[in-house]
Design a protein around this nucleic acid. Structure first.
Lengths: 188, 188
DNA sequence: TCTATTTATTGATAAAAGTCAATACTACAT
DNA sequence: ATGTAGTATTGACTTTTATCAATAAATAGA
């Protein structure tokens, strides 16, 4: 398994080499080419990915508008929560914006891991806790900040993404129009 | 223990009577009077509550503005995620808006439960997953909906809360001003 | 009950962001 | 090199929401 993935896990709970090796067969390495989909809206998705390299984008379409909900950078966990946890059809699509290497596990295998060793269950819990806190913080930002503040915060948090994706993806992630983002970028 | 709490747990995983009884001593029933704080901003909070009755509000203060982030109704889990999961000083305060009965467990005891029986760890994970999905959905709403749509959705989702709390709390929960909410309420 | 405080509404105006449309820029494929 | 599709910028204008201020209504205490 890849180092960055192991480091993420080890930051959450200590694993022995044996435990790591036991888990390895559950994860499959896959490579997505640019524009390939990891999840397609309307389908059920039972796969969870750790991004090893590349970049993916989650988005959904509503009322003629396309809304970006997440950029998955290396080190991120990437899944459609509504589908994976809620067992529903995914509302979002997740698409690779460039060639991306992922470590993928499906729900069934993940749950086997959880039952096999409580430490994996713990890591699963800690991961979701971490993403829950991040989601809460994003909610608060959207609720309380102006377009300009949101963009500055985005640049600080994801400097690489700013360089790599079309601005209108970032605009929709911030809940503003591309025109507004373009103007906001030229303030100060 | 209270029925609504047990029902919540059973909806997530099946527990035997023995398992339930083993867990009981970890939970303390507390009653908050109106305006009592469950969490105070700036303090560390290691307590998690199940709301049995009453109503609480999470909020924080920024730039002279007060922003409501959550209403905890009966059946809800109530905590400051940033503090409880992130082990940081809480940014929010959580205050009872009326007399409220809570079942409270602290982090240490919760983690003992997790280690004692993997099913509790599983329930902990499932609970966070559930709240994560809800948080994602709220983010998407804030990102993509108008003030009017947000309010209509709030009324549909929390009809009781609408009756019970000052409108400006709801306004700040929706990321709009009290004046805008007042106007939006009289549309159509 | 009366008063003080909080809360809600309304109006006038300002600011922020959206919409529409034109144009320019870029990257890529042929 | 040329053309195409996607992307970014800019301007004029509209809509939405915020702000400020005044008043009205509701509520909680004494």
């Amino acid at each position: 398994m890849n180092n960055s993935f192991l480091e993420l896990l080890k930051s959450l709970a200590p694993f022995s080499d044996v435990e790591q090796n036991n888990a390895m067969p559950f994860f499959k390495e896959i490579t997505l080419q640019k524009n390939d989909f990891f999840v397609k809206a309307g389908h059920f998705s039972d796969r969870m990915a750790f991004v090893q390299s590349g970049l993916l984008r989650s988005y959904f379409i509503t009322k003629e508008k396309e809304i970006t909900t997440f950029f998955a950078i290396p080190g991120s966990v990437c899944l459609d929560a509504h589908s994976f946890f809620g067992l529903k059809q995914s509302q979002e699509s997740i698409q690779a914006l460039m060639k991306s290497e992922l470590l993928v596990i499906n729900r069934e295998d993940l749950y086997s891991l959880y039952e096999e060793n409580w430490k994996w269950q713990q890591v699963g819990r800690l991961l979701v806790e971490k993403y829950f806190v991040a989601s809460e913080e994003r909610t608060i930002a959207l609720q309380s900040q102006t377009a300009h503040e949101l963009y500055e915060q985005f640049v600080a948090e994801f400097p690489d993404v700013v360089q790599m994706v079309p601005q209108h993806y970032i605009a929709s992630y911030l809940g503003i129009t591309p025109e507004t983002l373009s103007r906001v970028r030229h303030i100060k």
